[in-house]
Write a protein that binds this DNA or RNA. Structure first.
Length: 424
RNA sequence: GUGGGUGUAGCUCAGCUGGUUAGAGUGCCGGGUUGUGGCCCCGGAGGUCGAGGGUUCGAACCCCUUCACUCACCCCA
């Protein structure tokens, strides 16, 4: 029989890995909520047209990476390749701008892109995503960037580099694009085949090329920063000024262009060493026209996405046991086991992590089991104790054992454990 | 989509120029006091050597095909 495995590029998070994920998710919630962000949970699939319009028809994501299928009623649906589009859709659909002119939202979950998997790149991957709507001031840009950096620092990730750029707006970007195309066309023969193609499809992408010969051409190319209009230029310098006020080191990367069409003005990216070729941990930027473009009011927006798998790859390994029992009940013989069974469930009902083994193994193997579960206490009793109406409670660290009255086990154990829990 | 690398026990890997019942560590199960864990010792279970074909007296090892995983390009989180 053919073995059924997980789909290529889609991974399980096994019990040993889940503590890191929990830590990450909790840390994100704590930090983001300090900055006034509320969670929004958006669906994992949307109408295909949402992504086509927001991300851009000519992007790689839309052209060849989306998981798109026809629903039974012929509607085209797509597994989301990123979160921003869905958040904006929900923001518009539920008219969230009406209840608060400035809205801060975050969300996290799986995204899907059909790429060839490699280190740090999967077909189902997870992002933490934050979006700020309704504020086009440079302070909003700086706040969002600061929150991102603060979050990453909270997790103890070293060797972070923050790169920023301004991509201009509707007014100045086309002028720049035109200049770039003119420049590149004159030097087409010095470019790699990919870049020659890009001149016509997405000229700004040439800036991302890593081929050496292209690099030389790019070095001499027009720079977006020289083409910014007065407003964009003013905006960018104020963002930089805010970042400096926060003592946040950054580098200006005039070659940075983000892969999604909707970005305007501030764009940023956080990289980290030790991630292999996919060294981009997080990226984001401003998208002032997008809400309106998707049918909503003319509201500014800025946000970022963090790759959770990549983040975890930067984190020190977490060896904590995914489960630690507070008490293990080791019962010997049928009578004891019957009592132990109810006791275990009762303890659990009281919020105590109790564990036992139902298979009637030897005390030795039950003790081993208790040890493996890192249980703080083990309650031991068999026929002998039942005759004497008691049970032995062993402290696994000190090896001290005390007798507890069998007919008040639940109360006695709860009492002792609650006291311990409080100390912790 | 295009290249390179790797597929042997649940996991990490040995396996010399092809040679007989394919190994280790770890994990799992059991034993070493009759009812007491971690350390140590002993034993056990577990593998159609990714799959298919070929060469050969004989293939985990050589050849071909295929699949999977992985890294890189591309692109991005």
């Amino acid at each position: 029989m053919e073995k059924i495995t997980a789909v290529k590029g889609i991974k399980d998070v096994l019990p040993g890995d889940s503590p890191v994920w929990h830590r990450l998710e909790l840390a994100a919630r704590r930090v983001f909520e300090c900055f006034g962000f509320c969670e929004i949970r958006v669906p994992i699939m949307e109408k295909t047209s949402l992504f086509q319009r927001s991300i851009g028809e000519a992007t790689d994501i839309v052209e060849k990476e989306m998981y798109t299928f026809r629903d039974r009623d012929d509607e085209l649906l797509t597994l989301r390749p990123e979160a921003t589009a869905s958040v904006i859709r929900a923001y518009i659909e539920h008219n969230l701008s009406a209840s608060d002119p400035v809205t801060r939202l975050y969300t996290m979950g799986p995204m899907f892109r059909r790429e060839r998997p490699q280190k740090g790149r999967f077909r189902q991957f997870h992002q933490i995503d934050a979006e700020l709507f309704g504020d086009d001031s440079p302070a909003a840009d700086a706040e969002v960037i600061f929150m991102l950096m603060h979050f990453l620092q909270t997790l103890g990730i070293g060797k972070l580099s923050l790169e920023i750029n301004s991509l201009g707006c509707k007014a100045c970007r086309p002028v720049f694009s035109g200049a770039v195309v003119d420049y590149l066309k004159g030097r087409e023969s010095s470019l790699c085949p990919d870049c020659q193609r890009r001149i016509h499809t997405n000229p700004l992408r040439v800036f991302d090329c890593k081929v050496e010969s292209c690099g030389e051409v790019i070095d001499g190319a027009p720079r977006i920063l020289d083409f910014l209009c007065a407003d964009c230029s003013e905006h960018f310098s104020r963002v930089k000024s805010y970042l400096s006020d926060l003592n946040l080191p950054y580098e200006i990367n005039p070659r940075m262009v983000r892969g999604l069409d909707y970005y305007t003005r501030t764009a940023f990216e956080v990289k980290s060493g030790g991630l292999g070729a996919q060294n981009s941990l997080a990226g984001g930027g401003r998208y002032d026209g997008l809400v309106q473009f998707l049918g909503g009011p003319d509201i500014a927006g800025i946000g970022f996405g963090i790759g959770m798998e990549r983040l975890i790859a930067c984190l020190p390994p977490d060896d904590r046991n995914p489960y630690a029992a507070e008490i293990f009940i080791a019962a010997l013989g049928e009578r004891a086991q019957k009592i132990a069974f109810t006791l275990t469930q009762e303890l659990r009902r009281r919020g105590i992590c109790a564990a036992m083994d139902y298979s009637g193994k030897s005390l030795k193997s039950q003790m081993k089991r208790a040890d493996k579960l890192h249980s703080a206490y083990t309650l031991i009793f068999g026929d002998r104790e039942i005759e004497e109406n008691c049970a032995e409670l062993r402290d696994m660290n000190t090896k001290n054992q005390q007798r507890l009255p069998l007919d008040q086990l639940l109360e006695a154990v709860t009492d002792i454990l609650k006291r311990e829990v409080k100390v912790l």
